[in-house]
């Protein structure tokens, strides 16, 4: 739609837009800046914005904490692991629901969604006890299992909406062209579904990375991912702002970048296709 927009209007909205954007982003920016300060500068009054002695010391120190790398590894293992297992379960299911729907397909989808509506505290007690009895407390395996189940409905839904957009006629064409079911999936469906699968994967890694109910409640020292590691800075004596900032920056930077890349697909995933 080509519409005439006056320069003045453009400038006005530019100023408003950038102003709001800056304000909303500011806490993140502030964390980023603080991570390069010394602990002294970090709590200085008046606050130091740009003109201070930049230092990488906090990063060194956080990384040299013996357990830091363990938490990073835990976060990666838990978020990627649960996403991959979720995809392995969801791709066949979504394929079946999108391309061979029955009268009950819709009910199954809605039911899957409803499991997502269950508040975690509703099942906290039994899961805690099951984990305790099975020796899964504070293990990566346990957290991977939990997060897989939590995100499975979202994965199925997102894949379903993507698969739905692949016209059935193309798969029929492949069938007419002599492709077996295997070849149909390998040569035709998968290449066409790759963008959808990729963005589903990205969103679910993000969600799992930031999950902070089960990870806080079911992990302690060994399997704790970064969410729980950062939470340990909340103790009253832990007023190490610069180090907190450095640890936080490292914990959110990779996910923030992934999130920016997947922002177009985000809406679909988060609203279960209700808004596209």
């Amino acid at each position: 739609m080509a519409r005439a927009i006056t320069t003045r209007k453009k400038v006005t909205f530019g100023i408003i837009g950038w102003g709001i954007g800056f304000l909303i982003f500011f806490p993140i920016l502030w964390t980023f800046l603080t991570s390069f300060k010394t602990e002294g500068t970090a709590i200085a009054t008046p606050p130091q914005f740009l003109f201070f002695d930049w230092t990488l010391e906090n990063y060194h120190e956080v990384q040299s904490r013996s357990d830091y790398m363990k938490h990073v590894t835990n976060s990666v293992v838990i978020s990627v692991g649960s996403t991959l297992i979720g995809l392995a379960l969801a791709i066949p299911a979504a394929w079946a629901m999108a391309f061979s729907p029955t009268k009950r397909t819709k009910d199954v989808l809605m039911w899957m969604l409803s499991t997502k509506m269950m508040p975690p505290v509703g099942v906290l007690v039994p899961l805690y006890l099951i984990f305790r009895d099975w020796g899964l407390l504070d293990t990566r395996l346990g957290l991977v299992a939990i997060l897989t189940m939590i995100n499975l409905p979202i994965i199925v839904w997102m894949l379903y909406t993507y698969f739905k957009e692949i016209p059935g006629e193309i798969l029929e064409a492949a069938r007419m062209d002599g492709a077996s079911l295997m070849k149909e999936i390998v040569y035709v469906l998968t290449p066409m579904a790759v963008p959808g699968i990729a963005s589903t994967m990205l969103l679910n890694i993000i969600l799992a990375w930031n999950e902070a109910f089960w990870t806080l409640n079911l992990s302690a020292a060994n399997a704790a991912p970064l969410t729980a590691f950062i939470a340990s800075y909340s103790s009253p004596e832990g007023l190490f702002w610069a180090k907190l900032s450095a640890a936080s920056t490292m914990a959110i930077a990779p996910i923030l970048i992934m999130g920016w890349f997947s922002q177009k697909q985000l809406v679909r995933g988060l609203t279960f296709g209700a808004v596209k």
Binding site: P167, E169, I170, E172, A173, A174, M176, V188, P191, M192
Partner: peptide, 11 residues
């Protein structure tokens, strides 16, 4: 078969 939507493989 030639389909209404052509059903070409877009990739």
């Amino acid at each position: 078969m030639v389909f209404q939507s052509y059903a070409l493989y877009p990739h």
